[in-house]
Nucleic acid binder design. Structure first.
Lengths: 144, 144
DNA sequence: CTAATATAGTTAGCAGGCTAATTACTTTAA
DNA sequence: TTAAAGTAATTAGCCTGCTAACTATATTAG
Protein backbone atom coordinates (compact mmCIF):
# COMPACT_ATOMS: atom_id res chain seq x y z
CA UNK A 1 0.00 0.00 0.00
CA UNK A 2 1.51 3.35 -1.08
CA UNK A 3 1.89 6.52 0.93
CA UNK A 4 -1.30 8.08 -0.39
CA UNK A 5 -3.48 5.08 0.38
CA UNK A 6 -2.05 4.94 3.88
CA UNK A 7 -3.00 8.55 4.36
CA UNK A 8 -6.50 7.89 3.15
CA UNK A 9 -6.92 4.91 5.42
CA UNK A 10 -5.80 7.07 8.33
CA UNK A 11 -8.33 9.74 7.54
CA UNK A 12 -11.20 7.36 7.20
CA UNK A 13 -10.42 5.56 10.45
CA UNK A 14 -9.83 8.85 12.19
CA UNK A 15 -13.08 10.23 10.86
CA UNK A 16 -15.06 7.24 12.06
CA UNK A 17 -13.40 7.25 15.45
CA UNK A 18 -13.82 10.98 15.93
CA UNK A 19 -17.47 10.98 14.99
CA UNK A 20 -18.13 8.06 17.33
CA UNK A 21 -16.36 9.89 20.11
CA UNK A 22 -18.34 13.04 19.38
CA UNK A 23 -21.56 11.14 19.53
CA UNK A 24 -20.66 9.43 22.77
CA UNK A 25 -19.46 12.64 24.38
CA UNK A 26 -22.67 14.40 23.43
CA UNK A 27 -24.76 11.44 24.59
CA UNK A 28 -23.09 11.66 27.99
CA UNK A 29 -23.94 15.35 28.22
CA UNK A 30 -27.56 14.80 27.17
CA UNK A 31 -28.09 12.18 29.85
CA UNK A 32 -28.52 15.02 32.36
CA UNK A 33 -31.76 15.91 30.52
CA UNK A 34 -32.95 12.30 30.03
CA UNK A 35 -32.64 12.81 26.30
CA UNK A 36 -30.85 10.49 23.89
CA UNK A 37 -28.56 11.58 21.12
CA UNK A 38 -30.59 11.96 17.93
CA UNK A 39 -33.74 12.94 19.78
CA UNK A 40 -32.42 16.47 20.14
CA UNK A 41 -32.25 16.58 16.36
CA UNK A 42 -35.98 15.92 16.11
CA UNK A 43 -36.78 18.47 18.83
CA UNK A 44 -34.60 20.99 16.99
CA UNK A 45 -36.67 20.52 13.85
CA UNK A 46 -39.87 21.11 15.79
CA UNK A 47 -38.56 24.28 17.44
CA UNK A 48 -37.99 25.50 13.89
CA UNK A 49 -41.46 24.55 12.68
CA UNK A 50 -44.04 22.95 14.91
CA UNK A 51 -46.75 20.82 13.32
CA UNK A 52 -44.61 19.35 10.55
CA UNK A 53 -45.63 16.07 8.96
CA UNK A 54 -43.49 13.00 9.54
CA UNK A 55 -42.45 12.87 5.90
CA UNK A 56 -41.26 16.46 6.12
CA UNK A 57 -39.30 15.65 9.25
CA UNK A 58 -37.70 12.62 7.62
CA UNK A 59 -36.57 14.75 4.72
CA UNK A 60 -35.17 17.45 6.91
CA UNK A 61 -33.40 15.03 9.23
CA UNK A 62 -32.19 12.71 6.52
CA UNK A 63 -33.52 9.55 8.13
CA UNK A 64 -35.87 6.75 7.10
CA UNK A 65 -39.57 6.71 8.04
CA UNK A 66 -39.34 3.82 10.53
CA UNK A 67 -36.58 5.62 12.42
CA UNK A 68 -38.81 8.64 12.82
CA UNK A 69 -41.91 6.64 13.77
CA UNK A 70 -39.88 5.06 16.52
CA UNK A 71 -38.44 8.27 17.84
CA UNK A 72 -41.71 10.15 17.72
CA UNK A 73 -43.34 7.36 19.71
CA UNK A 74 -40.69 7.55 22.41
CA UNK A 75 -40.73 11.32 22.70
CA UNK A 76 -44.52 11.14 22.85
CA UNK A 77 -44.24 8.63 25.69
CA UNK A 78 -41.84 10.99 27.46
CA UNK A 79 -44.44 13.74 27.09
CA UNK A 80 -42.32 16.02 24.92
CA UNK A 81 -44.57 15.96 21.86
CA UNK A 82 -47.98 14.87 20.54
CA UNK A 83 -49.29 13.57 17.23
CA UNK A 84 -52.41 14.74 15.44
CA UNK A 85 -54.02 13.41 12.28
CA UNK A 86 -54.20 15.93 9.46
CA UNK A 87 -57.77 17.08 8.79
CA UNK A 88 -57.38 17.21 5.00
CA UNK A 89 -55.48 13.97 4.45
CA UNK A 90 -56.11 11.09 6.82
CA UNK A 91 -52.80 9.43 5.90
CA UNK A 92 -50.81 12.32 7.26
CA UNK A 93 -49.69 12.73 10.86
CA UNK A 94 -48.49 16.05 12.20
CA UNK A 95 -46.16 16.38 15.16
CA UNK A 96 -46.50 19.09 17.81
CA UNK A 97 -44.38 20.06 20.82
CA UNK A 98 -45.92 19.92 24.28
CA UNK A 99 -45.25 22.62 26.84
CA UNK A 100 -42.50 20.44 28.30
CA UNK A 101 -41.00 19.93 24.87
CA UNK A 102 -40.82 23.67 24.51
CA UNK A 103 -39.25 24.39 27.88
CA UNK A 104 -36.46 21.88 27.35
CA UNK A 105 -35.02 24.04 24.57
CA UNK A 106 -33.08 26.32 26.93
CA UNK A 107 -31.11 23.63 28.78
CA UNK A 108 -30.52 21.72 25.55
CA UNK A 109 -29.12 24.77 23.78
CA UNK A 110 -26.73 25.24 26.66
CA UNK A 111 -25.46 21.67 26.42
CA UNK A 112 -25.14 22.02 22.67
CA UNK A 113 -23.10 25.22 23.02
CA UNK A 114 -20.82 23.71 25.61
CA UNK A 115 -20.24 20.63 23.50
CA UNK A 116 -19.29 22.74 20.52
CA UNK A 117 -16.86 24.82 22.53
CA UNK A 118 -15.26 21.61 23.74
CA UNK A 119 -15.07 20.08 20.28
CA UNK A 120 -13.67 23.11 18.44
CA UNK A 121 -11.36 24.37 21.18
CA UNK A 122 -8.10 25.77 19.77
CA UNK A 123 -9.25 25.56 16.14
CA UNK A 124 -8.94 28.90 14.35
CA UNK A 125 -11.80 30.47 12.45
CA UNK A 126 -9.92 29.87 9.23
CA UNK A 127 -9.47 26.18 10.00
CA UNK A 128 -13.13 25.95 10.89
CA UNK A 129 -14.02 27.30 7.46
CA UNK A 130 -11.68 24.80 5.82
CA UNK A 131 -13.19 21.96 7.82
CA UNK A 132 -16.64 23.07 6.75
CA UNK A 133 -15.61 23.14 3.11
CA UNK A 134 -14.07 19.67 3.28
CA UNK A 135 -17.05 18.19 5.06
CA UNK A 136 -19.31 19.66 2.42
CA UNK A 137 -17.12 18.18 -0.30
CA UNK A 138 -17.32 14.71 1.29
CA UNK A 139 -21.05 15.12 1.78
CA UNK A 140 -21.45 15.99 -1.89
CA UNK A 141 -19.20 13.12 -2.97
CA UNK A 142 -21.34 10.63 -1.10
CA UNK A 143 -24.55 11.94 -2.66
CA UNK A 144 -23.41 11.11 -6.18
CA UNK B 1 -26.56 34.07 17.97
CA UNK B 2 -23.46 35.70 16.47
CA UNK B 3 -21.66 34.86 13.26
CA UNK B 4 -19.12 32.62 14.94
CA UNK B 5 -21.69 30.54 16.79
CA UNK B 6 -23.63 30.11 13.61
CA UNK B 7 -20.51 28.82 11.93
CA UNK B 8 -19.91 26.39 14.74
CA UNK B 9 -23.46 25.12 14.65
CA UNK B 10 -23.09 24.57 10.94
CA UNK B 11 -19.94 22.55 11.37
CA UNK B 12 -21.34 20.35 14.07
CA UNK B 13 -24.51 19.60 12.15
CA UNK B 14 -22.53 19.07 8.99
CA UNK B 15 -20.13 16.77 10.78
CA UNK B 16 -22.92 14.66 12.21
CA UNK B 17 -24.75 14.48 8.92
CA UNK B 18 -21.64 13.64 6.93
CA UNK B 19 -20.53 10.89 9.28
CA UNK B 20 -24.02 9.38 9.26
CA UNK B 21 -24.01 9.47 5.47
CA UNK B 22 -20.55 7.88 5.39
CA UNK B 23 -21.69 5.11 7.65
CA UNK B 24 -24.81 4.45 5.64
CA UNK B 25 -22.98 4.52 2.34
CA UNK B 26 -20.42 2.07 3.64
CA UNK B 27 -23.13 -0.13 5.15
CA UNK B 28 -24.79 -0.32 1.74
CA UNK B 29 -21.51 -1.42 0.17
CA UNK B 30 -20.86 -4.04 2.84
CA UNK B 31 -24.24 -5.64 2.32
CA UNK B 32 -22.81 -7.41 -0.73
CA UNK B 33 -20.60 -9.40 1.68
CA UNK B 34 -23.30 -9.98 4.33
CA UNK B 35 -21.21 -7.93 6.72
CA UNK B 36 -22.49 -5.07 8.83
CA UNK B 37 -20.74 -1.78 9.39
CA UNK B 38 -18.58 -2.02 12.51
CA UNK B 39 -17.97 -5.74 12.06
CA UNK B 40 -15.28 -4.98 9.50
CA UNK B 41 -13.54 -3.00 12.20
CA UNK B 42 -13.30 -6.09 14.40
CA UNK B 43 -12.16 -8.27 11.50
CA UNK B 44 -9.55 -5.67 10.67
CA UNK B 45 -8.15 -5.91 14.20
CA UNK B 46 -7.92 -9.67 13.91
CA UNK B 47 -6.16 -9.53 10.56
CA UNK B 48 -3.58 -7.39 12.37
CA UNK B 49 -3.23 -9.75 15.30
CA UNK B 50 -5.16 -12.98 15.58
CA UNK B 51 -5.77 -14.42 19.03
CA UNK B 52 -6.21 -11.10 20.83
CA UNK B 53 -8.17 -10.99 24.07
CA UNK B 54 -11.51 -9.21 24.13
CA UNK B 55 -10.18 -6.54 26.46
CA UNK B 56 -7.35 -5.84 24.03
CA UNK B 57 -9.84 -5.61 21.18
CA UNK B 58 -12.05 -3.20 23.14
CA UNK B 59 -9.07 -0.95 23.77
CA UNK B 60 -7.96 -0.99 20.16
CA UNK B 61 -11.45 -0.43 18.81
CA UNK B 62 -12.48 2.11 21.41
CA UNK B 63 -15.71 0.38 22.32
CA UNK B 64 -17.25 -0.98 25.50
CA UNK B 65 -17.03 -4.65 26.49
CA UNK B 66 -20.72 -5.47 25.94
CA UNK B 67 -20.50 -4.10 22.41
CA UNK B 68 -17.64 -6.44 21.67
CA UNK B 69 -19.24 -9.47 23.31
CA UNK B 70 -22.25 -8.93 21.12
CA UNK B 71 -20.32 -8.52 17.93
CA UNK B 72 -18.02 -11.47 18.60
CA UNK B 73 -21.06 -13.67 19.19
CA UNK B 74 -22.59 -12.65 15.89
CA UNK B 75 -19.43 -13.10 13.86
CA UNK B 76 -18.95 -16.46 15.56
CA UNK B 77 -22.48 -17.44 14.53
CA UNK B 78 -21.66 -16.37 10.96
CA UNK B 79 -18.60 -18.65 11.10
CA UNK B 80 -16.02 -15.90 10.65
CA UNK B 81 -14.29 -16.36 14.01
CA UNK B 82 -14.02 -18.62 17.08
CA UNK B 83 -13.42 -18.05 20.76
CA UNK B 84 -11.00 -19.97 22.98
CA UNK B 85 -10.45 -19.74 26.70
CA UNK B 86 -6.94 -18.66 27.66
CA UNK B 87 -4.96 -21.50 29.26
CA UNK B 88 -3.21 -19.33 31.85
CA UNK B 89 -6.16 -17.22 32.94
CA UNK B 90 -9.62 -18.73 32.85
CA UNK B 91 -11.28 -15.31 32.84
CA UNK B 92 -9.74 -14.40 29.51
CA UNK B 93 -11.22 -15.23 26.11
CA UNK B 94 -9.10 -15.08 22.97
CA UNK B 95 -10.60 -14.50 19.54
CA UNK B 96 -9.37 -16.29 16.40
CA UNK B 97 -10.26 -15.97 12.73
CA UNK B 98 -11.66 -18.98 10.90
CA UNK B 99 -10.60 -19.82 7.37
CA UNK B 100 -13.67 -18.01 6.09
CA UNK B 101 -12.83 -15.00 8.24
CA UNK B 102 -9.44 -14.91 6.58
CA UNK B 103 -10.62 -15.22 2.99
CA UNK B 104 -13.11 -12.38 3.34
CA UNK B 105 -10.22 -9.90 3.73
CA UNK B 106 -9.64 -9.51 -0.02
CA UNK B 107 -13.19 -8.50 -1.03
CA UNK B 108 -13.52 -6.31 2.05
CA UNK B 109 -10.31 -4.42 1.29
CA UNK B 110 -11.64 -3.75 -2.18
CA UNK B 111 -14.90 -2.30 -0.86
CA UNK B 112 -12.96 -0.23 1.65
CA UNK B 113 -10.69 1.19 -1.05
CA UNK B 114 -13.60 2.02 -3.32
CA UNK B 115 -15.44 3.74 -0.52
CA UNK B 116 -12.43 5.87 0.28
CA UNK B 117 -11.99 6.90 -3.32
CA UNK B 118 -15.61 7.91 -3.41
CA UNK B 119 -15.42 9.85 -0.17
CA UNK B 120 -12.21 11.76 -0.87
CA UNK B 121 -12.75 12.40 -4.57
CA UNK B 122 -11.48 15.80 -5.65
CA UNK B 123 -9.81 16.58 -2.32
CA UNK B 124 -6.14 17.48 -2.71
CA UNK B 125 -3.40 15.78 -0.76
CA UNK B 126 -2.81 19.01 1.10
CA UNK B 127 -6.45 19.29 2.09
CA UNK B 128 -6.38 15.67 3.20
CA UNK B 129 -3.51 16.46 5.53
CA UNK B 130 -5.38 19.46 6.90
CA UNK B 131 -8.48 17.37 7.45
CA UNK B 132 -6.40 14.81 9.27
CA UNK B 133 -4.89 17.46 11.51
CA UNK B 134 -8.28 18.95 12.35
CA UNK B 135 -9.83 15.58 13.08
CA UNK B 136 -6.94 14.79 15.38
CA UNK B 137 -7.42 18.11 17.15
CA UNK B 138 -11.12 17.39 17.70
CA UNK B 139 -10.30 13.88 18.84
CA UNK B 140 -7.81 15.25 21.35
CA UNK B 141 -10.24 17.92 22.53
CA UNK B 142 -12.88 15.29 23.28
CA UNK B 143 -10.41 13.19 25.27
CA UNK B 144 -9.79 15.93 27.81
C1' DC C 1 -67.17 4.59 -11.40
C1' DT C 2 -63.87 1.47 -10.49
C1' DA C 3 -59.33 -0.72 -10.83
C1' DA C 4 -54.53 0.36 -10.65
C1' DT C 5 -51.10 3.12 -8.70
C1' DA C 6 -49.00 6.19 -5.48
C1' DT C 7 -48.24 8.00 -0.85
C1' DA C 8 -47.93 8.24 4.55
C1' DG C 9 -47.02 5.81 8.14
C1' DT C 10 -46.48 1.39 10.86
C1' DT C 11 -44.71 -3.19 12.23
C1' DA C 12 -41.31 -6.80 12.59
C1' DG C 13 -36.86 -7.97 12.92
C1' DC C 14 -32.13 -7.21 12.65
C1' DA C 15 -27.59 -4.47 13.41
C1' DG C 16 -24.37 -1.34 16.36
C1' DG C 17 -23.71 0.79 20.73
C1' DC C 18 -24.40 2.10 25.38
C1' DT C 19 -25.02 1.66 30.95
C1' DA C 20 -25.89 -0.94 35.09
C1' DA C 21 -25.74 -5.09 37.25
C1' DT C 22 -23.93 -9.74 37.49
C1' DT C 23 -20.85 -13.97 37.23
C1' DA C 24 -16.55 -16.19 37.40
C1' DC C 25 -12.03 -16.23 38.23
C1' DT C 26 -7.38 -13.99 40.22
C1' DT C 27 -4.67 -11.38 43.02
C1' DT C 28 -3.60 -9.21 47.22
C1' DA C 29 -3.36 -8.29 51.96
C1' DA C 30 -4.62 -9.21 56.81
C1' DT D 1 -5.03 -19.27 54.44
C1' DT D 2 -8.77 -16.93 53.78
C1' DA D 3 -11.46 -12.59 53.14
C1' DA D 4 -11.43 -8.46 50.35
C1' DA D 5 -10.46 -6.21 46.20
C1' DG D 6 -9.71 -6.30 41.36
C1' DT D 7 -10.38 -7.92 36.55
C1' DA D 8 -12.58 -10.32 32.19
C1' DA D 9 -16.49 -11.16 30.21
C1' DT D 10 -21.59 -11.63 30.12
C1' DT D 11 -26.58 -10.49 30.59
C1' DA D 12 -30.53 -7.46 30.60
C1' DG D 13 -32.51 -3.67 28.87
C1' DC D 14 -32.40 0.63 26.77
C1' DC D 15 -31.39 3.72 22.46
C1' DT D 16 -30.55 4.96 17.21
C1' DG D 17 -31.00 3.33 12.75
C1' DC D 18 -31.80 0.35 8.93
C1' DT D 19 -34.60 -2.85 5.32
C1' DA D 20 -38.57 -5.46 3.94
C1' DA D 21 -43.18 -6.11 4.20
C1' DC D 22 -47.56 -4.29 5.41
C1' DT D 23 -51.95 -1.17 6.18
C1' DA D 24 -54.74 2.60 5.19
C1' DT D 25 -55.92 6.40 2.57
C1' DA D 26 -55.73 9.29 -1.95
C1' DT D 27 -55.18 9.94 -6.63
C1' DT D 28 -55.35 8.82 -11.34
C1' DA D 29 -56.51 6.49 -15.57
C1' DG D 30 -59.30 3.32 -18.21
Amino acid sequence: MGMINLLKADIRILFTRTSAKMRKDYADALRALDIYVGQDHLLWQLWNGDGATQTELCDRMGCEPPTLTNMVKKLEAYGLLTRKKDVLDARVTRVFLTEEGRTIKGPLDEIWEKHQERMLKGISKEDQLTLKRLLQQIDTNLSE
